[in-house]
């Protein structure tokens, strides 16, 4: 029956991992601004096309 020790330990360790993840998230300021990242993640595509556009422009001019 001593498997219960292992199980309880595992369960608490798993919970502790989530707690640590939460604390690191807070420390990195993820809870400071809950709006901007939701917009920022939509930008990635535009960025790429812009780079392409800029490169083609450069090529044309050179």
């Amino acid at each position: 029956m001593s498997v219960i020790y292992i199980l309880i330990t595992v369960s608490i360790v798993v919970a502790a991992v989530f707690l640590i993840a939460f604390i690191t998230a807070v420390r990195r300021g993820q809870y400071q601004d809950s709006y901007t990242p939701s917009v920022r993640m939509l930008f990635e595509d535009e960025l790429v096309t812009d780079k392409d556009a800029a490169e083609t422009e450069n090529k044309q001019s050179s």
Partner: peptide, 20 residues
């Protein structure tokens, strides 16, 4: 940010104690 830490810790402790 201390209140957020406290909220996280209190939730963690509460869940585990409830289970036990």
């Amino acid at each position: 940010r201390s209140l957020l830490y406290k909220l996280g810790i209190a939730g963690f402790v509460f869940g585990n104690v409830m289970l036990l």
